[in-house]
Amino acid sequence: MTKDIIHKVILLADDDLDDAEMFADVLAEIDSTVELYHVPDGFAVFEWLKNPANPVPDIIFLDINMPQITGWQCLSSLKADELTKDIPVLIYSTSSHHKDKQTAIDLGATAFITKPSDYKILEDFLTAIVNELHNKDIASIIRRLSNSLHLE
C-alpha cells in the first residue's frame, strides 16, 4: 500500500451534493490534509471499498435516505463483511427521531448524528473527530461528543 500513514481518510456517503460540499468545505477549513472521499449511494460505498487502489477509511459517514439501498442496509452489510466490520460508521442523517438512533446502535453503528443546522456546530464536531481519527477509542469519544453537542 502506498498510503501515507499520516493521512487521515474519511469516506462520506451522501446523495445530497450540497451537504457533501458543506462537509468538504468545513473539513478543508479544519485540516486540509484529511482525505475526504465522497460517494453518492450505498452501492458506491462497496465499490469504493472493494477497489484496492482506494485507501481504507478511518471512518465512514453514512446518510440514510439514499437511492437504491438505504443507509440501514448499507450499514448491515458493512458490519457483516469481515473486511469492513471494524471501520467505525457514523450514521449522519437529517432525522432526529430517537427511534432511528436506536436502530443505528442496534445495527452496529458507532453513533447516530443529526446533520447540524449550524455551521459552527459542524465545525466543532469535525475538529474533534479529526483529531481522534487514529485513536483506537474513537467510538466512545464520538459518543461523548455527540451527546454534549446535542447532535443526537
Partner: peptide, 16 residues
C-alpha cells in the same frame, strides 16, 4: 426540514 436545515446552515456560514 431538509431545505430548512440547509437554509439555517448557510445562514450560519454567512453569519460567520
Amino acid at each position: 426540514q431538509e431545505p430548512l436545515r440547509k437554509i439555517e446552515f448557510y445562514i450560519s456560514i454567512v453569519e460567520d
